[in-house]
Design a protein around this nucleic acid. Structure first.
Lengths: 228, 228
DNA sequence: CCTCCTTGGATAGTGCGACTATCCAAGATT
DNA sequence: AATCTTGGATAGTCGCACTATCCAAGGAGG
């Protein structure tokens, strides 16, 4: 297909496609002549991916590029790809001077095994700092609940990664990290609305028809053991 | 305090403070003379809030303004404020032409009571569309897990809103919606890393017992502790 | 009182990111 | 042969979030 068809198929204007080609976000088509090139379904998919990452994932083109590079390289082990992906995903926290002490302490209490230099840790650190900078409460209860929910989500995330094709696995991990986020956040907001709407007493009973999650978790309270 | 002190106290450069004043994001100080004004702790807090919303919450100044307006008006019922807040929070989905059918169906299945015109619904719709536009799987299992986690989180969110001062409640809801998000997302990523680090077989059942032991999962019955 | 510095307020300029617009000559299409 | 369309290059635009510069009025120290 030619560039104008590609444009029609993807919904991206021709000049923008040219721009993406220049920026090497979209691989060039197979040149059939000096002024003609042939594009295929792969290009359509790539364009859709770029738009999804920018529009829904709210990523800058620079970030999109690095994400695409990871996906293209794609041969890393899935676990390593998660790390690499998280490094280059927004919001970028530029290797702060001080170590993310509070975040480190938290994951230690949770017993999670994470890379101490992880960007996500730094993100957590600045997020925590921002929260109490503006005077919002963030006690252990809330953190525990958040961490629990995050772990629940991560479990289905990990379980959902296709194990057959490593390239596809990496793609899934990288793209999924970004694109499932808005789903989760939208659901959180809707759940808030629901809880407020369900009754003036915000702590109304559960009415999720999908399934009863009570009892799915180990409810044991883990006290911050000073020694692991 | 004068503007230079305000700058030092908040870490925001003087010209930027002037800019915020011009843009009416920051209320003017109490003028003590034609070329002198007095600022107070409220201004410091406001500046910190603005920076938190832009830097951590990644909001545009236009969005910050509308959020601040809600907070300033502040007298709405808390439940209504949630709705208003969600309307003006990013990402803005401009009142699409078609109704968010898929999102509506989902919340109906969940049994959640939400406003059918809610921006969050539209956000969910485009997020879902984006996800399968790029070919990521999003089955009922995953959705159920996400919804469950979202509800868990929303419950502690709602429970954490101070009920005494309505102005403060609104502030908490609005600011909290935005500023807790990065915390949640960072935790999700860290949890993913943990799960990959904990074992090379992502799909496997937990063989070590490590996982179930580690989350300080504490969502048994909501309201027990934090009630002064 | 005089000098010098800071301030508030106004106006204009900068840098960046993400596109658009315009040209052009080589092909393709009819 | 006449009329598109295309790929490639270069330049221009637009919005956003700041910065920079001016200026005259205060205020503070001597």
């Amino acid at each position: 297909m030619r560039i104008s068809e590609l444009s029609r198929a993807s919904g991206v204007p021709v000049p923008t496609i040219k721009f993406y080609l220049r920026e090497r976000l979209l691989p060039p088509g197979r040149a059939t002549a000096a002024t003609q090139a042939e594009y295929d379904e792969g290009h359509v998919g790539r364009l859709r991916l770029i738009r999804a990452l920018t529009d829904v994932g709210r990523m800058s083109l620079a970030t999109v590029r690095s994400v695409l590079e990871i996906v293209d390289a794609g041969s890393e082990a899935t676990g390593a790809a998660v790390g690499t992906a998280h490094e280059s995903l927004p919001p970028v926290v530029p290797q702060g001077d001080a170590p993310p002490a509070r975040a480190l302490r938290l994951v230690k209490e949770l017993g999670w095994q994470v890379d101490a230099g992880s960007a996500s840790l730094r993100q957590l650190e600045v997020a925590l700092a921002a929260v109490d900078e503006v005077g919002l409460p963030l006690g252990p209860d809330r953190l525990a609940a958040y961490a629990g929910a995050a772990l629940d989500v991560a479990r289905v995330d990990v379980a959902g990664v296709p194990s057959a094709d490593p390239q596809e696995a990496v793609r899934h991990v990288v793209v999924g990290t970004v694109l499932y986020e808005p789903v989760l956040l939208a659901l959180r907001r809707l759940a808030q609305q629901h809880l407020y709407a369900a009754g003036p007493r915000p702590q109304g009973r559960d009415r999720t028809g999908l399934h009863d999650r009570t009892g799915l978790h180990d409810h044991r309270r883990k006290e911050e053991g000073p020694r692991p």
